[in-house]
Each structure stands twice: as C-alpha cells, then as structure tokens.
C-alpha cells in the first residue's frame, strides 16, 4: 500500500519533469520572456509567441468568473442559510447534475444556443459583425461549468463557520441578512477567495467546451465579440501536426507545462486556505 501511494505521488513528479524536459528545446531556443510576451506565432519559421493564447485564456476566464461568482455566491448563501430542507433536496441534485454534465455537452449547447444568440441578438448592438464564436461565448459556457464547483466549496466553507457565531449575532438584534453580511461573509472571506481561485484554475484548463465556441483564431481579440484561442484549445487542435515541424512539439508541451504550473500553484494556494479553515473549526 505504501508502494502504491508513493507511486501515486510520483505521477505528479513525473508529469512535471516530463513536461519540463519536453519543453526545454523551445525554452532554450527562445527566451522565456520571448515565449510569454510576444504574439507572433509562426510554427513553420520556428517562432512561438504565446501572448495571443495567454491573453485569450485570461479574457475568457475573466468573463466566466465575472458571471459565475455573483450567481454562485448568492445561490450558495441561499442554499446554506435560507433554504428549507425540502428546497435543498430539490436543488442539490440539480447542482450535482450540472457538475456531472460532460464538457462536450456544454460545448454542443453553446454552439446551439449561446453562439447564435450572441451573433443575432447581442453583438449587433455593439459591433458591425460577429460570428458569435467569441470570447464572450467561451466565457458564458465556462461560467456555467464552474458554477457548481464554486457553490459546493462555498457551502462547505459556510458550514465550517460555527453556528454559535451566527446565534450570537442574531441574539444581539441583527437581522438574518446582517448576520450573513457582517459575520458569515466576513468569517468566510478567505474560503470564498479560495473557491474563486480554484474556479479560475479550473477555467484555465477547460478545453473542449471552450474550443467549440470560441472561434480558435490566432489574433489577439479586440472585443469580447471577437474570436479567441485559449491555450488548451491550442494543444488540442494541433497535437496532430506537431510531429512534422521542428520544435512544434516542444512548444505545445511548453503550453501544457505553463497550464500545469499555474494551475498547480493556484490549486495549492486555495487548498492550503481551505484545509486551514476546516481544521480550525474542527474539534
């Protein structure tokens, strides 16, 4: 059992070493700065600038967080503080299901609903033309995908806040909402933050659903109605051709490494906060 446990932990190490090893050629050839902060993407000329993809990922994620956090926070407060047992029993299977739906289904729904809605109804108010396959479409689809994650973590965080604290606040005459605002939210601020960070890292790595609705166009998007090309989509779309060009494989592995490192850091940070919270209130 110890052996298998160690093996499991080694996987983490092997992934990082393997990805680093594979991306070494491209890191050596171009500087790290060049890779991260230039946007010219010319695999045939052996030049790889990831800025377009990094910015695309950041923008899509930003929109997703902007939509998902308020909705999830409100809904989590409702579920943990106001909802009756019956309502909870009705809503929580829904949230479970939402987290269980495969990304590709979200992608299908996005192309059926979100993309045409943006191109026919929303975009014409703001820009001349948009296909609908855009930063915004990616952000909306992604938002729906991370909502269940944020809700379930925030509910856990709220549950870790001792009931007595709420009771004390109520007993000195505060209303329920005041208690939530001044006691519950204040106490669980780090936990809510951790949930958001976890959601960001989840959004960074989401591949197929975003790929299906964001247009995959190698140019830095000027508005939210423009197509974009996030990092995971880059890997997924090009793994087939990467063998034919020098350093292409290395560049794509670098993209995977980049995602891996950022996500590990974010995850580690938020898990540390969350562990701390649950331990503090546990007897």
């Amino acid at each position: 059992m110890l052996g298998i446990t160690v093996f499991g932990l080694l996987v983490l190490l092997v992934i990082s070493v393997g990805l680093l090893y594979k991306s070494m050629p491209v890191i050596k050839e171009q500087s790290l700065y060049d890779l991260l902060f230039t946007s010219s993407w010319k695999p045939s000329k052996d030049h790889f600038g990831f800025l377009t993809f990094i910015l695309s990922t950041l923008r899509v994620t930003f929109i997703a967080i902007l939509i998902a956090v308020p909705l999830s926070l409100l809904s989590a407060i409702y579920l943990s503080e106001y909802a009756s047992e019956r309502t909870k029993k009705m809503l929580s299977p829904g949230i479970d299901l939402l987290s269980g739906i495969p990304p590709v289904i979200y992608g299908v729904w996005g192309t059926l609903v979100v993309v045409p809605w943006i191109s026919d109804h929303l975009a014409p108010h703001f820009v001349d033309f948009s296909t609908g396959y855009s930063v915004l479409a990616g952000g909306i689809v992604l938002a729906i995908m991370i909502i269940p994650l944020i809700i379930s973590i925030i509910i856990e965080v709220f549950a870790a806040v001792p009931q007595e604290l709420r009771e004390v606040s109520l007993s000195v005459g505060a209303t329920k909402w005041q208690t939530i605002k001044r006691v519950l939210l204040l106490k669980s601020l780090p936990g809510v933050l951790a949930a958001v960070i976890l959601a960001i890292s989840r959004a960074f790595g989401e591949t197929i659903a975003v790929l299906m609705v964001c247009g995959n166009f190698t140019e830095i998007p000027k508005s939210v109605f423009d197509a974009c090309y996030p990092l995971p989509a880059l890997i997924a779309n090009n793994y087939g051709e990467m063998m034919s060009l020098p350093n292409y494989e290395s560049a794509l592995m670098f993209a995977a490494l980049l995602l891996f490192v950022i996500i590990i850091l974010f995850n580690a940070g938020s898990r540390l906060i969350l562990n701390h919270i649950t331990q503090r209130y546990q007897l």
Binding site: K22, Y239, L252, I263, N267, N275
Partner: peptide, 26 residues
Amino acid sequence: SGIIRFAFDIMFGIPSIVYGAFGFMV
C-alpha cells in the same frame, strides 16, 4: 496523510488536457 491527501487534491485539479499531453508523451 495530510500531505498525501493534499497531493491528490492537487492532482484532482490538473486539467484533462494536461493528462492528455502527458499521456501523449508517455
């Protein structure tokens, strides 16, 4: 236990595309 659990929590957060890329590498 805490450390091992933490490591697996982190593995839980690694996106599937990275596992895919790693699998491809292997």
